[in-house]
Amino acid sequence: MSVPLLGEPLPIELANTAYAVRGEPRDGLENVELFTEWLAAIEDRLPWRLSAEELAAIGDFELTAARELREAVRDIAQAITGRDAAQVAAGSMAGAAPSVGAVETLNRHARWAPYWQELRWQGEPAAQVRSAAPPVTAVLSFIAQEAIDLFVRRHADLRACQGPGCVLLYLQDRPQRRWCSAACGNRARAARHYARHR
């Protein structure tokens, strides 16, 4: 699978399905097959499993919904990451106004498939997450709800990668971090080194 998976929260992983290779835009949700591959790759991070039959049943409706949710998450993230350094340091959201349409889209996806926990008892108590919605709709709704939580609680940590030609997002987990991955950091350092020695 060519779509980058960075171990970030699922809303960021979804946003990062729009990525770049050597500065050229790529779409990790270009078709149903790529979307299905992405869902299979993140399945262990979901609150419930998608069966092979459910993955095989994915069609254009689910793909369109995933793309729509991705664009809403990216729009909101870009508004947040577009703040200046002083606003970030102060934890301020001032000046960060995503489009009303992106917020409405995110909220609509969050409402599509409420989910709940049910108690299961098989020797030990366990919680099983359930939803009455179709499985992929429930997954997208779960990601939308996670995005809302992320934008409310962790907005000050959200960053856009500063690597040359990179368009990925990440959560800053240490003060010195400026790149989505070590590979982007290496490319940025190599580009600076090359520029100095030209």
Results as ranks from 00 to 15, higher is better:
I80L: 15
D27I: 07
I58F: 01
I80M: 08
F35Y: 04
A52K: 14
L34T: 10
L50N: 03
D27C: 07
R70T: 03
A85K: 13
A86P: 00
I58M: 11
A52R: 15
G28E: 06
D84M: 09
S51E: 00
E53W: 00
A77H: 09
E53Y: 09
A86D: 15
V88C: 13
I58E: 01
A57I: 10
L63G: 02
I58P: 02
E54R: 09
A52F: 02
F61C: 02
E71I: 01
R45N: 12
A56F: 09
A85F: 13
R74D: 08
A86Y: 08
G28D: 01
A77G: 15
V73R: 02
R45Q: 14
T64H: 12
G28A: 04
E33V: 13
A85Y: 09
R74K: 12
A86F: 11
R22M: 12
A56P: 03
I76D: 02
L50R: 03
R83E: 05
R22G: 06
D44V: 13
R45W: 07
Q78V: 00
G23Q: 03
A52I: 10
D44G: 12
A66V: 07
L29S: 02
W48A: 14
L55S: 00
V73D: 07
E37D: 15
G59S: 11
G82A: 11
R22T: 09
T64K: 14
L29G: 01
P25M: 08
I76H: 01
A72L: 12
A41M: 05
R26S: 04
R83S: 02
I42E: 05
A57E: 10
F35D: 03
A77W: 12
P47Q: 07
R45Y: 03
L55F: 09
F61V: 15
L55H: 00
L69Y: 00
Q78G: 13
V73A: 07
P47S: 08
R74F: 12
E24C: 04
V73N: 01
G23V: 02
E33P: 00
D84G: 14
N31H: 11
A85L: 14
L29T: 03
L46Q: 11
L46P: 01
D75W: 12
R26Y: 07
V32R: 04
D27L: 10
R70D: 05
L69W: 05
L39M: 12
E62T: 10
P25F: 04
A89W: 10
L55I: 10
R83H: 12
R70S: 07
A65C: 14
T36Q: 13
G23E: 02
A40Q: 15
R83D: 03
A57L: 12
I76L: 13
L55K: 08
I42D: 06
A52Q: 14
D60T: 15
R83Y: 10
R74E: 11
A72M: 11
E30C: 09
P47V: 02
D84V: 09
G82S: 11
A89K: 14
A65K: 07
A52Y: 07
